[in-house]
Design a protein around this nucleic acid. Structure first.
Lengths: 253, 253
DNA sequence: ATGTCTTTGTGAACGCGTGCACAAAGATTG
DNA sequence: CAATCTTTGTGCACGCGTTCACAAAGACAT
């Protein structure tokens, strides 16, 4: 019944701050690029610039992993690539299942960035019987009925949800029941999961709205005298709202 | 030329904390759902549960917007929907341009969540001449050469980048030059933008890597004695130490 | 009107993350 | 070997965000 925690426990894992963990992939990407150019070492300053962060922050981040640098020289690129990869668990292979093969699901399946590092699309699952067997990105789509079997047979522990919002929670529950303990949710829904299951969400609509907020603010800075718009009279509780029908009766993403 | 700040200035806008702004869309979604069910009022507790957050946090968030609640009763749903919409700038229409119409770009163009609230796909732009004119999601794709004109003619201030990583910075620069001041970046690249331009990134790969980290940690908790694998010899920069490993004694997860 | 009950709004404490600034460490040069 | 120079690693202070806990405010019943 999907009655569980909704937010991550913020369990400070093994002393590495969550904020640092979130930046490690950034460093890894920059380091990989350097590695491909056969650059042997980098200073914290250079690497920080490449990763778009502060150099002090980068050094502190690395200090949580250990002392991998050489003073007066910098960091050994190859060595650091390996250390971060190991820390992130990318030295092993993670089979991933994508549930909901619509526009987005198919796009993700085709996305090259998946297989690039440690991740492998192990299964595509959809509720539409007509899609069963259809190959997407070279992989045959399987039906939701077999979800349990698919997950366990492939040893999938990371699931990606790209279903319509209405189906997301149900799919989530089934994934968790089948053994998935990490979920990447693209559906615009708040997922409830039991403790011990990690959920990360990617929400286009939310990102756009945040941008819109700042955009509006920027536009409003010039015209400070700008009228706030017609402040519709307070809709007295249990009463009626403004006559000008201010309500956008539109459904959100 | 892309020489500018990379991170947002964290400019505390109008007294509303960034963290709060990021949650407003969440509240708005939950409120819209309630509105459709014609629920007149909600308590902070109910709404918080629906949005997946703490009720105290929700109340504090709302307190930044003003006192919109009624003690002993709760919040008027319709009124709050309007207030948050206005605060986020969703009462006006935001024309959005998507650059890079590959798998992902096309998927986003088709994504219903776009038009749902305040956002309208005003233009689709791609560098492939063969795509020019091809309709995607009912909109004809236009060529990159006309980017400047397209942006200014449509008054686009929000751009979405779904190009390959190599082209992202260049596209970004052109968007900014054309007048775009908010960018949603799906390309796995660190974008440099001048001050005053907001960038938000959505990165599938990074999200997966963060999940993998936690997944590994969870798996490692049981088997603490797990072997760390073969630690590759440290590429000692210009100086050798014991071959046995000056491996920083990092503890196994 | 008075009292009770519910729920908001917020003061205050706490913890996390960030950035500064510098001492320590090692490379490098004379 | 001593001096100098570069860059790391980190102690410390500060600010933001979260959470607790409670007084104030209003609804509602008597």
């Amino acid at each position: 019944m999907a009655t569980g925690r909704t937010h991550r426990p913020a369990t400070r894992s093994r002393g590495i701050p969550e904020a640092t963990v979130a930046r490690l992939p950034l460093y890894l990407r920059a380091l990989t690029a350097l590695s491909e150019r056969s650059v042997p070492t980098v200073s914290s300053e250079e690497l920080a610039t490449a990763a778009g962060v502060n150099s002090a922050k980068l050094r502190k981040d690395f200090s949580y992993l250990g002392s991998y640098g050489t003073r007066g020289v910098g960091y050994d690129v190859e060595y650091l690539v390996y250390q971060i990869s190991r820390e992130l668990g990318l030295t092993q292979d993670w089979p991933v299942a994508i549930v909901g093969i619509g526009n987005l699901g198919a796009a993700l399946a085709n996305y090259g960035g998946f297989a690039s590092r440690g991740f492998r699309v192990a299964a595509l699952i959809d509720a539409d019987p007509a899609m069963a067997g259809t190959p997407v990105a070279g992989i045959a789509v399987q039906h939701t009925d077999d979800l349990d079997r698919i997950i366990s047979e492939n040893g999938v522990s990371i699931g990606v949800i790209t279903t319509p919002p209405g189906a997301a929670q149900q799919v989530c529950d089934r994934l968790v029941a089948a053994g998935v303990t990490s979920i990447l949710n693209f559906a615009p829904t708040v997922l409830s999961v039991p403790e011990g299951v990690d959920v990360r969400k990617v929400d286009l609509s939310i990102e756009l709205q945040i941008l819109a907020f700042h955009e509006q603010r920027k536009a409003g800075e010039d015209a400070t005298a700008e009228d706030e718009g017609a402040p519709p009279m307070r809709a007295t509780p249990a009463g009626r709202k403004g006559p000008d029908g201010d309500m956008p009766a539109v459904m959100p993403a």
